[in-house]
């Protein structure tokens, strides 16, 4: 059960992302061209409901399943890394039509080209690790 619950959560994630077509290159184009409400509605609903949940978790000091308090880490302060990193991410996101979650879900659909994308993403991650100290953060 210790491992199984994470696999089950992942399966649910994969099904949701597939059946809502949020793993589709075409849907990303529709979004970046502002021609459909679909992705905005999807993200908007997730953020609004998620915010309410996080607010309630903090207000009532909700514990996790082990009984320890749920702690949500704040992101480090900064601007350059978020703006520059975010923009670089976005360039690749619209090109491949997939952010990291959907890359893996697409493998399950038999889109083996996503293996090339994931391999590229691993190289990109490695390069960040190499040049980390030379970049503005």
């Amino acid at each position: 059960m210790k491992s199984l619950k994470f696999i089950l959560a992942g399966i649910l994630f994969g099904i949701i992302m597939s059946k809502s077509e949020a793993i589709s290159w075409y849907r990303m184009q529709e979004m970046f061209r502002f021609q459909s409400f679909h992705m905005y509605g999807l993200m908007g609903t997730a953020v609004v409901l998620g915010s309410i949940a996080v607010f309630l978790i903090k207000k009532f000091y909700v514990n996790d399943y082990t009984g320890s308090p749920i702690v949500i880490q704040d992101k480090d302060k900064g601007f350059a890394r978020y703006m520059l990193g975010g923009t670089i991410f976005g360039l690749g996101w619209a090109l491949t039509g997939a952010c990291p979650g959907p890359m893996f879900v697409n493998i399950g659909h038999g889109y083996f080209g996503m293996l090339v994308v994931i391999f590229g993403a691993l190289i990109g991650t490695f390069l960040y690790g190499v040049f980390k100290n030379k970049l503005p953060h």
Partner: peptide, 19 residues
């Protein structure tokens, strides 16, 4: 595909997270 993936991977780690 490989360049697109590299941008996503580099950018995600630089920004400290993805979508």
């Amino acid at each position: 595909l490989i360049l697109g993936g590299m941008l996503v991977g580099f950018g995600a780690r630089y920004a400290g997270g993805c979508t």
